[in-house]
């Protein structure tokens, strides 16, 4: 059986009622099953129950994923989906997914999740998957609804598929929504050590002194090691290291001599041949990582 495609197709379905979501979503999945594709439904428990009922006997061919607690930080959500898709793609040559995005109540975080949808286009661009992100129009604020059209090349609305005229290249959208960064003045300098092993020893002492839970110490050591090695190998060497608490979180800034890079998707691309996975790993393990150029040099800030 031949795959239906070799690359991602990322569309949105905006719907007015649960009945519409179930009807269109189930039909979308069934067409895939008939063609030998795998099926994934990602929703809250209620949505999963409705879709399971609608699919009837076909439900046994579909993987159901409860996403109630999956939408925490964008890259962690991407990693969760990546794991689900990876498992499915070991069984079928391609897949179709119906995924409900969990926007929250705080307008301050809407850009973050719109950015997640933009990054999705690139993160899984290599996967033979057709993902239909679903949005209940009645409960969504205008800014989020507009974001749907900006982040999905195609949108199904009123039962009709439309190519989105508002779709923006993900890099452009992400650059437009990211805030300017500056070095944190509250951080204290650490000696610049020779090699990543010494750096880990030094940073471990700082993290333990900060009473960071052990599991998270290891997460931070892994994440910062990736950045440190990047700075040594591609940034001309580490110039300075600063650590400390800022806004309640432990932060580490690593400054290198290089010109840096301007890639808002760095660390958002799911692992694939030819693409380094270091920043993908580092982002999964931390609260956030920012890159910026300051008077000190090209700076990576890793926040736990």
């Amino acid at each position: 059986m031949e795959p239906q495609g070799t690359a991602l197709r990322h569309d949105a379905l905006v719907y007015d009622s649960g009945d519409e979501w179930v009807e269109l979503g189930a039909a979308f999945l069934r067409r895939g099953l008939e063609a030998g594709e795998g099926g994934v439904v990602a929703h809250t428990r209620q949505g999963l129950s409705l879709m399971r009922e609608a699919l009837g006997a076909d439900a046994s061919e579909v993987r159901f994923v409860d996403v109630s607690a999956a939408y925490t930080r964008p890259v962690r959500t991407l990693a969760s989906y990546h794991a689900v898709y990876a498992e499915q793609l070991r069984r079928t040559p391609s897949l179709r997914a119906v995924a409900d995005v969990q926007f929250g109540p705080d307008p301050g975080e809407w850009d973050l999740w719109t950015g997640y949808e933009a990054a999705f286009n690139r993160s899984f661009s290599h996967l033979p998957a057709w993902v239909l992100c679903t949005y209940a129009t009645g409960s969504l604020p205008e800014a989020v609804r507009e974001g749907v059209w900006r982040t999905h090349p195609g949108v199904v609305s009123g039962g009709t598929w439309t190519r989105s005229a508002l779709f923006e290249e993900p890099e452009r959208l992400l650059r437009g929504s990211s805030a300017a960064r500056r070095p944190m003045q509250v951080l204290r300098p650490l000696p610049v050590v020779d090699g990543v092993e010494q750096f880990r020893e030094l940073l471990a002492r700082e993290l333990v002194a900060e009473r960071m839970p052990s599991a998270r110490v290891l997460d931070m050591l892994l994440a910062t090691s990736e950045v440190f090695v990047n700075a040594e190998q591609h940034g001309g060497g580490v110039v300075s290291i600063r650590v400390g608490r800022a806004d309640g979180r432990f932060a580490c800034e690593i400054v290198d001599r290089g010109a840096g890079f301007d890639d808002p998707l760095a660390g958002y691309l799911a692992p694939r041949p030819g693409v380094g996975a270091g920043l993908w790993v580092a982002r999964q393990l931390t609260w956030c990582i920012d890159f910026f150029t300051s008077a000190d040099g090209f700076t990576a800030r890793i926040v736990m």
Partner: peptide, 23 residues
Amino acid sequence: RQIEAGALAKLRASLARPAVAVP
């Protein structure tokens, strides 16, 4: 040192596994 490096590499690999088989 080798055991530590191997352990860290193992953890890294667990988070960086590709979804589809590499050609």
